[in-house]
Each structure stands twice: as C-alpha cells, then as structure tokens.
Amino acid sequence: MLTELRIAGFGGQGVILAAHIIGNAITLVEKGYATMTQNYGPEARGGAASAALVLSDEPVLYPYLTRPDILIAMSLEAYTRYGPEVKEGGFLLVEEDLVQLDALPQVPKCKIYGIPATRFAEELGKKMVLNVIMVGFFSAITKAVSPEACRAGVEHEVPKRFLDLNVKAFNKGYEYGLELLTHQGERTHPGEEMIPGLELENHTK
C-alpha cells in the first residue's frame, strides 16, 4: 500500500513538524517506510509552507508525490493551490475557520472533513499546537497511522517541556475526528448538491 500525503499551510503553523511527527510514527513505530520532501524555493520563505510524504509498507522508490491521496490544508492558499490535485475519493482535511471550500470554482471530489483547529489550539493555551491537533484529526479520520504511533511521533519530535500540551492537542484532534465520524459518518462530497463549507460550519456550531 502506498499513500501520498500533502500537508500545507502558512509559515509558523508547524507544517514541517506535523510531517515529521507522521514520518516518525510510520518509520520508527509502525516499521513502515516514509519519504518526506518539501519545497525549498524562495516561495517557501515566510508565506506558504508545504510538506509531502510518501507512506508505504515497502521501501519508497519514486520520492515525489504524483497525486496525493490525502491533503491536510491549514490555510486558504494551501487549499486553493493543492486542493485540485487530490485524488478522486481521497481525503481532504481542512482547518475549517481558515478554509472556505467554495473558494475553488470546483470543490474537489473527495471526502472532506473540517476542524476548527486554531480555535481549539487557542483554547488549549497555545495557538502553535494547531499542527498537532491536525495530526490527531488526520489519524482519526484517515486511519493511515495509528494514534499510538502518532503519540510516539509527538514524543520524539517535541521538546519535553511541551510534551503534555502537545499530547493534549493530539488527543483533542483525534477525539474530535472520531466524534465527527460517529455523528456524521463518512462525508462524501458528491458535487453541487451540498455546500460542505456551510454544513461543516453548522456542525461545529
């Protein structure tokens, strides 16, 4: 099984750290293979940030993404830029307060889930942990990586003094994801007949 994952957002959101947590979880805990690449061009300074991960149960040969199975979009720009690439039937996980789905002329035909991660992070006391909340959410919704492995990944990547906070953040995202699945089931976006952005908003309220 080969899964292509892109995590994108803006500078300061911890996109690369999120990718590292998942990479660690896959390679060090689940004994799978993960290859992470990122953009290094001048466009990666300050503004947009993106990391790509190829996850597999055998050694990864081709290092780049062809079409992501999963996109974690933490900013509107990330969504508009990378949204159209997502495979049909894949997963699109968004920071729902920052991403308006109708910003793309055609909403991607994939399973879309939203979470107010920034707000949750602020409630936990540090806006910076939104990335780890997104990782928890990703683990719950996609099941691509187990929560135990992700928690170990968090432990590996985060300085000790921030560990408790980050584990809380992970759990928050994970539980919210499970809850969403229980209440809503799988949300398949069929096209014009619903406007997921609005519905997501309804749900979170």
Binding site: Q13, N39, N131
Partner: peptide
Amino acid sequence: GVGCGDESEGKEGCCSC
C-alpha cells in the same frame, strides 16, 4: 536533538511552543 531539519517556515513551527 535530531528533530526537524530545515524549517523554512520559522522556528515557532519547530518547537510548537
């Protein structure tokens, strides 16, 4: 630490603090 390599997005994203 052997944590994240390059952080083109800035330090804050690195330490989640």
